[in-house]
């Protein structure tokens, strides 16, 4: 098994390539919150199908991967209120802020969009403060 940081770079290169394929091929920004949010909201049928196929790709890859690899252990909080509040905040925040870690963090930052740089610095900062606060109070 590679050291973590090598896997991180390889995984990152793949993610960046995936966003590049979607942008160069279809003229779409691979922002997951945007794709999901647009899919929930109304959009044209052809557009809806493309969004759905991207999401199916996201869902299908782990099933393919874990058919031949061991399923890793993931650790996530089991606090119901935390999951609900966190989910609502991520849902509302990414639509209000027009993007998340993929749309702003990868696509926008890689073209030096000022909006994306501000968004990324903001969610990194509040994310860091939230984790520090949770550690302090919990």
């Amino acid at each position: 098994m590679n050291p973590d940081w090598i896997n991180a770079i390889i995984g990152g290169l793949m993610i960046g390539t995936a966003t590049g394929i979607l942008m160069l091929g279809n003229g779409r920004i691979a922002g997951i919150s945007g794709i999901l949010g647009g899919w929930i909201g109304s959009s044209k049928p052809s557009d809806w199908a493309e969004r759905a196929l991207f999401l199916i790709g996201l869902l299908a890859a782990p099933l393919v991967y874990y058919a031949s690899n061991s399923v890793p252990q993931i650790t996530v909080t089991n606090s119901f209120p935390l999951l609900v509040i966190g989910g609502l905040a991520v849902g509302i925040g990414t639509i209000m802020g027009s993007g998340c870690t993929s749309g702003h963090g990868i696509c926008g930052n890689s073209r030096l969009s000022k909006r994306s740089i501000v968004a990324t610095l903001t969610f990194m900062a509040t994310g860091g403060i939230t984790v520090a606060a949770l550690n302090y109070f919990a």
Binding site: I32, L36, L59, G93, V118, A119
Partner: peptide, 26 residues
Amino acid sequence: NLVTGSAIFGIGWGLVGICPGPAIVA
């Protein structure tokens, strides 16, 4: 909206450690 939305997203991200992409994969 950009700044407030991103701030709210960051709080949710920090609370649980999941953002939209990994949520769907996980």
